[in-house]
Amino acid sequence: MEAMSHLVNAAGTSTPTELKAQAAASSAGFAYGLAAIGPGIGIGYLVGKSVEAMARQPEAAGMVRTTMFLGIAFTEALALIGFVVFILIGL
């Protein structure tokens, strides 16, 4: 609560330019955080299924690992897009 009141007081005394910078910084943080959630779920699901497949059929592990690695990298691209939004609009 104390932090919130500091924030409200700061907002009350800030110039419009500072307010805009503050809003951009917090929006950038939210953008990066939100952009990391989806890929996190995707990678968890992808890796879980891959591990299940490899444990069940180790002779196919090479193929599964190959596609798993590419899948992870593609999913991670979403997080990197969030990162790019983050560096372009904030910090």
């Binding site: 591990v51 299940e52 490899m54 444990a55 069940r56 059929q57 180790p58 002779e59 592990a61 090479g62």
Partner: peptide, 11 residues
């Protein structure tokens, strides 16, 4: 690869 054990923890 090691033989199939079926358990992700030990494979």
């Amino acid at each position: 690869d090691s033989p199939s054990t079926g358990s992700p923890m030990t494979t």
